[in-house]
Write a protein that binds this DNA or RNA. Structure first.
Lengths: 135, 135
DNA sequence: CTGAATCCGGTCCGATACTG
DNA sequence: CAGTATCGGACCGGATTCAG
């Protein structure tokens, strides 16, 4: 029916198991998914995937992020253990951010998703155009 | 350094290429990523991955979604061509939603991400606890 | 250079009530 | 059964200003 059907079936089964549990407290999967969709998190992760960066360096490479959101997003990523923050006691001070091992392990799953996105964009946009014309 | 390093390197390179383009208009990758993080989209996709569902059936299987958001999210998914909507002209009327081929092709990338989330949750929560205690 | 603090508009989304 | 319409709070995130 579609490529990767068997693999998909496995994921569907696992998903069914996961949500079948009473899930004491908020669902951890949703929690992670929220961060993925967060406006800047994944953008920064992929930027840091190319190597460690300083604060303003990140600000230059992701021009349309505000200082506030850059600080906040980096702090959240650090809190989740995806990014490590190292302060150099120089003058003026400089701070370097780098992916942790956990953060690096996220590159492949995100990459899979980005690859899907790039491949599917034409069909999605075509579908949108058609949908909007009908309605 | 970490498992999947070679694969990761490929994704990093591709990502660099993707963002290097001037990106006329809004970045399509961000556009898709936004939908992933959308509060309900992926939850519905994974629920529909198990098979077609009627409206109220979905409402029962995802209890904490409001009628409004269920309608709205399904319409957005339909607009993007991920979900097909079929109306049966019965009394009372019934409407069935199912994943399109495009929607099905999303199961594997999402599944990869969910698998990462499940595997990484313990480390993430440990990191959060540690971070909160320090600060 | 690397932030923190504040203000504020826009958007998301839940609750509720109504319709064919 | 399968929606639509409206209201209102909460939160996200941008712009600006101040600080170590």
């Amino acid at each position: 029916m579609f490529e990767g059907q068997d693999t998909a079936a496995i994921y569907v089964a696992r998903w069914a198991d996961a949500v079948a549990t009473p899930a004491a407290g908020p669902c951890p999967v949703r929690d992670v998914l929220d961060k993925i969709g967060d406006k800047w998190s994944m953008l920064l992760v992929m930027t840091l995937a190319a190597g460690p960066r300083r604060f303003n360096q990140l600000h230059r490479e992701v021009p349309d992020i505000s200082q506030k959101m850059l600080t906040q997003t980096l702090r959240d990523l650090q809190r989740d253990g995806l990014v490590a923050r190292q302060v150099f006691d120089t003058k003026p001070p400089s701070v370097e951010y780098r992916l942790t091992d956990l953060g690096q392990s996220l590159i492949v799953p995100i990459g899979t998703l980005i690859e899907w996105a790039n491949k599917s964009i034409p069909r999605i946009e075509a579908s949108r155009t058609h949908f909007d014309q009908v309605s």
